[in-house]
Simulated scan of single mutants.
Amino acid sequence: MTDSALPEALEEIRSDFLAVGQSERLQLLLEFSNELPELPERYQEHPDLFERVAECQSPVFLFVEVDQDDVVHLFVTAPRESPTTRGFASILVQGLAGLTADEVLAVPDDYPQTLGLTQAVSPLRLRGMAALLGRAKHQVTLKRQAA
C-alpha cells in the first residue's frame, strides 16, 4: 500500500496504532469504540436507510451521505457490547470525515490489515472491518451514480 493514497487522518490513526505494542493497540481500539458518534437526530428514526454489514458478527449498520460538495459523511451503528467492531467503525467515521467521494474510494481496501491488529483481533473481525470499509465505498459509488 502506498502512503500517498492514504488520507491524512487515516495515516495518523495507523501511525498511532503502529507506534505502540500489541496490548496497547487493543486498548487504543477500545478507546476508539467509545468515540463512535451517536446518529444525528434526522436518522435516529430511520433504520430503513441503513445497510446491515452482514460480514460483521455484531449487528452493524451503516449509511453514507454524499453532499452537494461531493463530501462523504459516514454514519454507523454498532452495539457497545462489540467494542472491537465499534472501534473500527469509529476509526472509519473519524478517518473518512471531510473526504471527498474520490478520496474515500481511493482508500486501500487492505487498510484494516495495516493497523497492526492481526495479533489482537480474530481474522473474522478483520474481515468484518474490511467489509465495513467495502460497503461504505460501495454506498459512495451508488450515491454518485444516483446523483
Rank of each mutant, 00 (worst) to 15 (best):
S4H: 15
A5M: 08
E11K: 15
D16H: 12
E24L: 09
E24M: 07
R25T: 05
Q27V: 13
Q27L: 12
L28G: 01
L29H: 04
L29D: 02
L29R: 08
L30R: 13
L30I: 15
E31G: 02
N34Y: 10
Y43L: 15
D48K: 06
E51Y: 10
Q57F: 01
S58T: 10
V60W: 05
F61H: 15
V66A: 05
Q68S: 12
Q68T: 09
Q68W: 02
D69M: 12
D70M: 06
D70L: 09
L74Y: 08
R80Y: 06
S82F: 00
S90K: 09
S90W: 01
I91L: 13
I91H: 06
Q94L: 10
Q94A: 14
G95Y: 09
G95T: 10
G98T: 11
A101I: 03
A101L: 10
V104T: 14
V104R: 08
A106L: 12
V107E: 01
T114M: 09
L115E: 04
T118M: 11
A120Q: 13
S122Q: 03
S122T: 15
L124C: 00
L126P: 05
R127E: 13
L133G: 02
G134W: 01
A136S: 14
A136F: 05
K137W: 04
V140Y: 00
T141S: 03
K143T: 02
R144S: 06
Q145G: 06
A147I: 04
